[in-house]
């Protein structure tokens, strides 16, 4: 187990190093931020001064070297636009995205897996057909359109839920959270639902396919032949048998949604990191873009690592495979 963790840690470091180079070079290629940072009526002297101060006059490799050196010391640099440390900037926005994404993914997983198992156990019932029909809808309707319809229906027409913003927050451990107040919670409902819809559809399909397969397996037949009740079979056998693909997708979706909840955050003016990165790209705020992408890569590495650990906890064959490796 220890060997596995060390090996994965080394892999992670390599991935992060490569990622940082790709991101840095990529962002460098996007364009020169000087024109956006300085006022249009600045003199040539002022312009030269800014370029020197931001280190933009150095060759690419030197710029990267400074960036990497600072990164190793925990310094992601300062935003050109906000003129504050990037880490502070992202850190201030992250809780908003974190609570939105976690709530929507947990909702999608719990509800989706339950509906999917039901549809897998009773494939011919009317309710199952309805569930599967809805899941196709969840796949095929674009998320921005659903967001607009949600706002139109619940905020504009019915007026029962707010259309945007985070609402009231409570500060816990120095971080503001919305989901702890009733008002904040009412602000989360619509964006979380919007974000959850596609994932819900996917979880339903995954759980249904897995359940269908498991219900026809010899394992379930043997359990039935031993007189186990259907409820026990579902809880103890099927749920475990279908968990691996569900956890895989859960991890992948968690990462990509945390990093790219942009559309939903924009529609519901949710002050999360998605909005921050889009704003940074439009003004070529290089340090924010680079730090954000590097952090995203780190996030994915960590999620994959956790998912692998969970696999090993669930499946003894993976565990023993590792011991012999």
């Amino acid at each position: 187990m220890l060997a596995f963790i060390v090996q994965r840690a080394l892999q992670a470091i390599l991935v992060m190093a490569v990622m940082s180079v790709i991101v840095f070079v990529g962002v460098y290629a996007v364009g020169n931020p000087v024109d956006i940072v300085i006022p249009p009526d600045a003199t040539i002297a002022m312009r030269e001064e800014v370029i020197r101060r931001l280190g933009l006059d150095l060759p690419l490799w030197k710029q990267y070297g400074i960036f990497a050196w600072n990164l190793l010391h925990g310094d992601f640099g300062r935003s050109f636009v906000y003129n504050m440390p990037v880490l502070e900037l992202i850190g201030g926005r992250l809780p908003a995205t974190l609570e939105l994404v976690l709530i929507s993914i947990l909702f999608a997983t719990v509800v989706g897996v339950s509906l999917g198992i039901y549809a897998g156990v009773k494939p011919d019932s009317l309710l199952s057909k309805l569930i599967m029909g809805l899941s196709i809808l969840g796949f095929s309707v674009p998320s921005f359109w659903v967001g607009l319809i949600l706002i139109l229906t619940f905020a504009v027409s019915l007026g029962i839920l707010p259309a945007g913003g985070r609402g009231e927050t409570v500060t816990v451990f120095g971080v503001p959270w919305s989901f702890l107040t009733l008002n904040g919670l009412s602000h989360i409902v619509l964006p979380a639902l919007n974000l959850a819809l596609f994932k819900l559809a996917m979880m339903i399909r995954l759980a249904r396919a897995g359940t269908r397969e498991a219900m026809l397996s010899d394992t379930v037949k043997f359990a039935r032949a031993a007189g186990l009740s259907e409820a026990t079979i579902l809880r103890r056998h099927v749920l475990k048998l279908i968990s691996i693909p569900i956890i895989t997708v859960f991890g992948l979706e968690l990462g990509s949604t945390l990093a790219f909840a942009v559309v939903t955050e924009t529609i519901f003016s949710w002050p999360g990191v998605g909005k921050l990165i889009i704003d940074s790209i439009t003004v070529l705020d290089r340090p924010v873009m680079v730090a954000y992408l590097v952090l995203t890569a780190f996030l994915f590495v960590m999620i994959n690592f956790t998912v692998d650990l969970v696999f090993a906890a669930i499946d003894p064959r993976i565990r023993s495979g590792r011991q012999s490796a």
Binding site: D218, T219, F222, A226, G227, L228, T232, R236, I314, P316
Partner: peptide, 30 residues
């Protein structure tokens, strides 16, 4: 009655036993 008065064994034990549960757990369930 299944398992108590009439029981069944299948062809492939690798397919009939759940790979994710210990033998003790599976026997306990039965």
């Amino acid at each position: 009655r299944r398992g108590r008065e009439i029981a069944m064994i299948f062809q492939d034990p690798i397919a009939t036993l759940n790979p994710l549960l210990t033998i003790g757990q599976q026997m306990g369930l039965a």
